[in-house]
Amino acid sequence: MDNLKKKNLKKKLSIVDLAKQLNISPTTISFILNGKAQEKRISSELVERVLKQIEEVGYKPNALAQSLRTGKTMIIGLMVENIANPFFANIARLIEEKAYKNGYKIIYCSTDNDSAKTKDLLRIFQDRHVDGYIISPPEGIEKEVDGLIDNGSPVVLFDRYLHDTKADFIVVDNAGSTYEAVNHLVKNGYKNIAFITLDSLQTQMQDRLKGYEKALNEHALSHHVKEISYYQEEENIIRHIVAFLERKPELDAVLFGTNYLGVSGLKAIKKLNKRVPEDLAVISFDDHTLFELHSPDITAISQPIEEISEKLITILLGRLNKTSKAKKTQSAVLAPELIVRGSSRKIKA
């Protein structure tokens, strides 16, 4: 190893150091690194000499300095409720894939549906100068979201939206999908249908409840709703569901408001030695790989994950790259699919 390379290992090179080594201006190197050599009429020979020197000395541009020059970090902040949940994990993976193809990197985190934690994470992302945000928001961050947009950072919300904010959003037809699920159960002969959901005022959970109630009202059937607090240990969720089902022996079907409630619900049903669907038919909002492995397989309301991801990143990239001409808030309500499986089959006469 020559003396120059040894020296470079001890000291991180700056663009000024590199310019001195090549006896050219830092500005010329900057133009080359930012792909403006042809525009600035820099000779191909000089470009080749600069790139060769960069490779030899291991020069790496300072990311913060680059962002100050270009006004971009090429980083997108993705904030989801829980990255371990298959729905959010799949959304993140697809967004990351398309973002990378467009030159952007993703930094993502879980908010745990906690507004205080979300505000802290937003401050961290702002300190990192991320270019834009994709968020599944908890309640109570409306002011922060509008502040980001006012400061020039585009924000796209998904899974739920915040009333009276300036953010673009993508959601699904939550009310229509639970309405369809309940009608499917009624058509198959079920009359005492419960809805086990989260104790939440968020738009997606409220809309799922509205769809359930609308369908039961149209058929003049009784409501049986159990609301469970967010982020309890699974053991507690199972215990609450067991107690609810024991208090309601008349139930012949249950609709779960999320996939993780559905998984816990199946464990509760097993604890009670009930058969699916003979004793209790089951449908869950959000599909899950475990639902296909269960015997019988579980009917699920499946969200269009690829379409959601595509629309999210397309809207955000349009805002970031100034290709979108939309000045007003952009939004879309997508249609989930009811995947009918063995857990909700028709009752034999």
Rank of each mutant, 00 (worst) to 15 (best):
K248S: 13
T197S: 14
A243H: 09
Y230C: 06
E233C: 02
I237Q: 12
K271F: 01
Y212C: 01
S264C: 10
L221H: 07
L216V: 06
A243C: 09
S264F: 07
R239H: 11
S264V: 02
V182T: 12
R247Y: 00
F244D: 05
H240F: 13
P277I: 04
F256M: 03
E227R: 15
A220M: 08
K187I: 03
F256S: 02
K191H: 12
H223G: 00
L185A: 01
I269E: 07
S264D: 05
N236T: 06
L261A: 09
N192I: 04
A215K: 03
N192G: 06
N183Y: 08
L272E: 09
Y230L: 15
S222M: 10
K187N: 14
K274S: 03
H224C: 05
V263P: 01
P249R: 15
Y260I: 10
L198S: 15
A194I: 07
Y230Q: 13
E234K: 15
G262Q: 05
L198I: 15
E250N: 09
I170M: 11
F169I: 06
R208H: 06
I170F: 13
N273P: 01
E246Y: 09
G189N: 07
L245Y: 08
L221R: 08
N174D: 12
S200C: 11
E234H: 10
K271W: 02
E233H: 08
